[in-house]
Structure formats: structure tokens, C-alpha cells
Simulated assay, not measured.
Amino acid sequence: MRHVKDVTFHLLTHEDAVELLQFERAERAWFEQHIEARPECFYTLQGVAKHIIDCLALNAQRKMHPLIIRQRGVIVGRANLRNIADDHAWVGYRIAQGAGGRGVAQSALKHLLTEARCVYGVTQLEAVVAVDNAASQRVLAKGGFTAQKRLPGYSRVSGAPRDCWIFEYSPALSHGLAANNTLY
């Protein structure tokens, strides 16, 4: 993993609303090239505030762990554990275009794996990634995830169906990788 300087992770808060809205608007075109578009109503202060309320409500129920990623104090991404139940959760992250290729996503995944295990007792993780998103696939593979199932037409990006992979992580699938990557 590349050395990532000055990257911090913190739980999403109501105080993040204005800066998060600015981040999401600035990165919208970039994100929408790779993942399904958020609804138009999200891109307002009220929309982001509702999103934060919803995420924090799920966090209070221990069903979601929504994080903001900052580098040198500026939001450069989001990382989440979601649908947390029993020993299972879904992993997701979105990194600003300008922060790509610098190890931020790998650092976020490492952080999520640690939080999953230490805070929630989760060891079975899954992530969905588009078949043409080689960068995210590399991040997941380096983190001990393996592609398990192809999902034809799973999402819609720019109005077109997009095939995706489900990547899975578990101690059994990743035996030996965790020690080499110091992730888990």
C-alpha cells in the first residue's frame, strides 16, 4: 500500500452537511461515471441533511457505520459499513477523483475491516463493484476480497445497465492475505 499522509476517518455528523454537499456536487460527474446516480433531491442542503439523519439513525441501531474521509482536513471520500447484521456487512466507499491512485481507498478499506471486526464483531464482508471498475477491484483484491458472483445488469450508470461483481471477504477466503497486508 502506498503511504497515505494526513488521512483521517470520522463518523458522519450533522456538522458535515454543508461541506459534504459541496464535496458531492464537486464529485458528482466523476461518481456518476462509475456508480448509480443519487436522486436529484440529494443535491440540496435538505437532501444531504436527511441523508445524514438516515445514516446516523442506522448507526444508532448498529446497522451502519458511515464515515467521512479527510485528507489534511478536507473531505476526499466516504466509507461505510452497511446492512450490518450478525457476522455480516457490506462495504462501500467513494473517493474523490483527485484523491484516486494515492492509497486513500486502500486506507479506507483497511479502516473498515478493522472497524468491522473490532467494533461490530463482523468478519463476513461483501462489496459490489462494476466489472469495468478495475481500480476498485484492485483495492478489494489487495484487501483480501475475491470476486465471487457476476451480477448481469445489476446497476444503471448513465441510463445503461452495468454488470457488477460481488466481492467477498472472510477469514476463510482470505487466509494468509491479512497477515501479509496487515489489514485484519
Rank of each mutant, 00 (worst) to 15 (best):
V119A: 13
A105S: 10
G100Q: 15
Q148H: 08
V104A: 06
Y154V: 05
K110I: 02
T123E: 13
T114V: 15
G143E: 01
D132V: 09
K142W: 10
G98K: 13
R117I: 09
A130H: 11
L151H: 14
A135R: 12
A141C: 09
K149G: 00
C118L: 12
R138Q: 15
L125D: 04
D132K: 10
K142C: 07
V104D: 04
V128L: 13
A141T: 10
L140G: 06
R102H: 12
L140I: 03
L113D: 00
Q106T: 14
R94F: 02
G103P: 07
G153S: 12
G100M: 12
P152W: 06
G144K: 00
A108K: 11
A105R: 03
G103I: 08
G101L: 04
L109E: 06
A141Q: 14
K149I: 03
I95H: 01
K110M: 08
G144S: 01
H111L: 00
E126H: 13
Q148S: 09
A141Y: 05
G143W: 00
C118W: 07
A135T: 04
Y120T: 06
L113I: 09
G143L: 04
R150F: 03
V139T: 11
A130Y: 03
Q137T: 10
N133D: 13
G121P: 04
R117L: 13
R94I: 02
C118P: 00
L113W: 02
A127M: 09
